[in-house]
């Protein structure tokens, strides 16, 4: 099966691919580099060699209290993911293992709720949040992101669960396993990888959600998306600091993303592309 490839053409392809890849990656790379420059260096033309100062990181924390929005992001994205899993796991489970004629329709309907534009319900949600005292609270935002991502979580889990052969569950039943031991010893170990991937992907989606997180918070519950967006109002030149804040905001998710890129394709295409 291995095709003969001349070293020459291989090198040519390698150069082309790396050039394109670096071009695409450049804005991120440049941000990271700029975060280690002084503000004066940052605006002094293209330079790929920073002076290596950590001052920006120190200042982002000391002046803007970076840690607070960071914790908000963690709590909200992890919290909403766990909440969504809690609701979605039984649903996806039953759809995968006891499908009815309507299962497909229900799944499609769930996906269609994702089609509803967020702005269309901005006003009522804003009013409900205002009247319920939920504006700028972690709880409110967590519930919001749970609802937003629930359809995707159900879908992802469904596609993972569907691949667990039903015969194995029947075998467990024949082997005398009660419902509890069936779930404990057979289902859970087989479902854990799928649940873990779903969790990872959903944390990424929740971390980066940038409509509700910006609109429903001001200061107390503002996660990193809102924190970074607040840099858009001009306050003089602060690019090195902006770069430092950006680097901190994207680094954890970038690393998680690199680890989950295989599952990302499966998960986000609902198993349609593997």
């Amino acid at each position: 099966m291995a095709r003969r490839v001349s070293t020459q053409s291989r090198i040519a392809w390698t150069i082309a691919a790396w050039a394109v890849a670096l071009l695409i990656f450049f804005p991120i790379l440049y941000t990271v580099l700029t975060s280690f420059k002084t503000e004066a260096e940052a605006i002094a033309g293209i330079s790929l060699i920073p002076s290596g100062t950590f001052e920006n990181y120190v200042e982002v924390q000391s002046q803007r209290d970076y840690f607070k929005p960071f914790m908000n992001s963690v709590v909200i994205s992890v919290g909403s993911t766990l909440l969504a899993l809690l609701v979605a796991i039984p649903a996806a489970w039953s759809m995968a293992f006891s499908p009815t004629r309507r299962t497909k329709d229900i799944l499609m309907w769930m996906l269609s709720t994702k089609m509803m534009p967020a702005v269309a319900v901005l006003v009522p949600i804003y009013l409900i949040f205002r009247d319920g005292g939920l504006l700028d609270t972690r709880i409110g935002l967590t519930v919001m992101l749970t609802l937003i991502n629930l359809p995707i979580v159900v879908w992802m889990l469904y596609t993972y669960f569907r691949e667990i052969p039903g015969e194995i569950l029947e075998a467990a039943r024949m082997d005398g396993a009660s419902l509890v031991s069936e779930i404990l010893y057979v289902l859970t170990p087989m479902a854990v990888p799928g649940i873990a991937s779903t969790m990872l992907l959903n944390i990424i989606l929740a971390w980066n959600e940038s409509f509700w997180t910006i609109r429903l918070t001001t200061t107390n519950a503002a996660p990193l998306t809102a924190f970074i967006a607040s840099f858009s109002s001009p306050q003089g030149l602060f690019w090195a600091k902006l770069s430092a804040a950006s680097t901190l905001a994207i680094a954890p998710i970038l690393i998680m993303g690199w680890f989950s890129q295989r599952q990302l394709v499966r998960g986000l295409t609902f198993g349609a592309v593997k």
Binding site: Y30, T34, A229, S232, W239, S246, W258
Partner: peptide
């Protein structure tokens, strides 16, 4: 990994980086 990275960048960061830098 290099090519997939921009997908994980949150929109405000992406927009600000492009806008300013």
């Amino acid at each position: 990994i290099l090519v997939i990275s921009p997908f994980f960048v949150m929109p405000p960061v992406a927009a600000l980086v492009w806008k300013n830098m």
